[in-house]
Design a protein around this nucleic acid. Structure first.
Length: 424
DNA sequence: TCTGGGGTCCTAGGACCC
DNA sequence: TCTGGGGTCCTAGGACCC
């Protein structure tokens, strides 16, 4: 039976989330900013029409966008995460064979569904998600993930499709559709390879599909070769219904203001360790090494630059926040140099292993690496009452380095005291 | 003054071993 | 002049994704 996949992708996801709770702004241009109000990461269609570029540094475009009446929102990840979960829930009610690919995308396996009613089915998905969450989505249907991505893209760009395109049904036009897609817009082709492909005379999706696979493999790698095969309708990338555990977990932030004292850096590193470690315990893993890194602003060429990192091997798997803070601070101490204005720091937990398996020992002891009651209690309380309710003293309270969020919307769906009020 | 954050996979080359 | 050959493991860096 030929495989049938759908890619469901939320339109302008972050911007759409904000609009759900600010319906008055419907029809007006809005943008969503990255952490620290750094740059623009999402725009609604009105902002796109104004020509506001994705990725633009906010401080550079703030004035002009204001003139156009653009409303800006700071990143509100709690809101987006919660809205995402609602969307995915609805998709799962259509079929359990779904791979949640990112915060705003999911692949669905529709193999076996009658081909002629697939477009209709896609429409129902759009309507149901929109009704249930207020989020608009597009659906691309095809035989491989890469082609489903193509279909989704075309559906999104062409309103006359109603947001749904079944590539199997428009096969006659496939060549012309692929010709219209620039090679850099194909899933799996980034900026670097797009450039290299262009200089080899391959400029659009059709030319990539028809390229010689051996040549692609030699000049690029096996990953791009798979992309070519997928464009031909030959599945190479499987669906993953159960997401694998993360192999590394990172937490890093740019600071709202430059840091010049080690005390503040220590505080930040403690906080990041706490966040990363809680994430790690949530997926029931232990780490075997922790990396700390610090950087001055790499973009500011006028300032003296310094960046360094330190990896501390742990000897045995660990998931205890206190212990990891100790190691992270030790690492920080060995790389810290006074006299610089630090812009960013981060903590990475490496070589993650399952919590209750001690690797390489003859007699694994399960108790030793299970979360301690203390860590469990800590996680429970912070889960219920919000992160930072219960914390290590080293995390501090002042947090002068905390990121800028001057335009943040409330946590409408995840905090009781920030629920939207009727009449607002 | 101010430019995000968090991941994965692949490959080449060096270290090391026999 | 001329200094083996083959295998494995690890790491850093480069590419990609959202």
């Amino acid at each position: 039976m030929p495989r049938v996949l759908a890619l469901v992708d939320c339109n302008n996801f972050y911007a759409s989330c904000e609009l759900v709770f600010a319906p008055k702004l419907e029809g007006h241009p809005i943008v969503v900013l990255s952490n620290n109000d750094g740059c623009i990461v999402a725009r609604n269609s009105e902002s796109k029409k104004l020509g506001i570029p994705l990725g633009a540094p906010w401080h550079k475009v703030k004035k002009t966008t204001r003139r156009h009446g653009v409303q800006a929102f700071s990143s509100n990840s709690a809101l987006y995460g919660d809205m995402s979960a609602r969307v995915m829930n609805i998709l799962t009610s259509f079929t359990p064979t779904i791979e949640i690919y990112s915060i705003d995308e999911a692949f669905m396996d529709l193999t076996g569904a009658p081909v002629n009613s697939l477009t209709e089915y896609g429409r129902r998905i759009c309507q149901t998600v929109h009704q249930g969450t207020g989020i608009p989505v597009s659906v691309g249907i095809a035989s491989t993930k890469t082609l489903a991505k193509v279909a989704n893209r075309i559906a999104k760009k062409n309103p006359e499709t109603g947001g749904v395109l079944n590539l199997e049904k428009v096969k006659l036009h496939l060549d012309s559709l692929l010709t219209q897609i620039s090679v850099g817009d194909i899933w799996g082709v980034g900026r670097r390879w797009s450039k290299k492909l262009h200089s080899a005379g391959i400029t659009n999706g059709r030319e990539l599909r028809d390229a010689d696979t051996r040549w692609i493999r030699n000049q690029f790698n096996v990953v791009l070769e798979r992309t070519v095969l997928e464009l031909r309708g030959q599945p190479c990338i499987e669906l993953e219904f159960a997401p694998p555990k993360k192999q590394t977990i990172m937490c890093s932030r740019s600071f709202g203001n430059r840091i010049t004292h080690q005390d503040a850096l220590r505080e930040a590193v403690c906080n990041y360790t706490t966040i990363a470690t809680a994430k790690m315990r949530k997926q029931k893993s232990c780490t075997q090494a922790v990396t700390v890194f610090i950087q001055t602003s790499l973009l500011n060429k006028k300032e003296p630059q310094y960046s360094n990192s330190c990896t501390v091997p742990l000897g045995k798997p660990c998931n205890d926040t206190g212990e990891l803070i100790h190691h992270a601070l030790g690492g920080l101490n060995s790389i810290y140099k006074p006299g610089f204005r630090y812009a960013r720091a981060g903590v990475i937990l490496l070589d993650l292993v399952p919590q209750d398996v001690e690797q390489g020992t003859l007699f694994p002891s399960t108790e030793e690496y299970a979360s301690s009651p203390l860590m469990n209690t800590l996680d429970d309380i912070n889960q219920k009452h919000g992160r930072g309710k219960l914390r290590f003293a080293a995390e501090g309270f002042a947090h002068k380095w905390q990121m800028k969020q001057n335009h943040k919307s409330p946590a409408y769906t995840t905090k009781w005291d920030e629920l939207p009020k009727a009449g607002d």
